[in-house]
Design a protein around this nucleic acid. Structure first.
Lengths: 119, 119
DNA sequence: TTAATAGTTGAATATTTATTCAACTAATTA
DNA sequence: TAATTAGTTGAATAAATATTCAACTATTAA
């Protein structure tokens, strides 16, 4: 068989399985998927998303709710904005944030149910 | 109003909203939820989970498939085992890993669909 | 019982990243 | 206009963690 790649330090054992799986593997999509989970996978961002799923809120509301500084909240909101997980609208001095769309809401709520059930 | 907590550096703006949301907030569950997403939110672990969702595999198969060392794969499998996301069975020298249960499979596949659709 | 192979493990390194701090912009109001 | 407030930003620090490396265990086969 021989090591088919440079990086691994062993021979493949089930070559047919690996070849079949490799043919179905779309690496770029798996990176995007990992990215999505990575962004939600921080407790501050998870709390923000859960809170915004309950009601739209401004930075100060979130800061008080989560007992954190405006800056820390704002930095994390930027991450969530860049990942298109939240949107916002400005009303005077105040910016209201909310979850981006139903898709995000559903994925988030499904994960929440998963945790609730396994308790 | 006054700063209700020590950590934040501003006053609450929508006190009624924050109070209502705070009453519904279960922090321990939100931490578990973030943990779940954090563990899946690494590209190596995402690839491993996707591959095991396709077919059960041993460490060497995964190492060849992902072009990584046995050690790196093994370390990540341990993380996934500890989070109860994968299980395994031994057959002689070889240990076969697979996704833990339908619950995990479904959450993972749903995230995958989400990414596929938004492309 | 020795050699070979599948897999694990702990320590070290290197990278990523969450929060802090101080300075800043944007909008409002006195 | 000047002062106030909501929010942002960049750099620095501190903490978390993915991979590497070398040594190790467990099972099988010679």
């Amino acid at each position: 068989m021989g090591k088919e790649e440079i990086g691994c330090d062993c021979d493949v054992i089930h070559e047919d399985v690996v070849n079949r799986v490799r043919n179905n593997m779309q690496e770029d999509i798996l990176y995007d998927l990992a990215d999505f989970f990575r962004i939600v996978g921080d407790s501050t961002r998870t709390k923000i998303m859960w809170a915004l799923d309950e009601h739209e809120m401004c930075v100060c509301d979130l800061a008080v709710l989560l007992n954190m500084t405006k800056s820390a909240i704002s930095h994390q909101l930027r991450v969530l904005k860049e990942a298109n997980l939240v949107t916002f609208r400005r009303e005077g001095k105040i910016i209201y944030y909310k979850l981006a769309d139903d898709h995000v809401t559903q994925i988030f709520e499904r994960g929440f149910e998963h945790i609730m059930e396994s308790k």
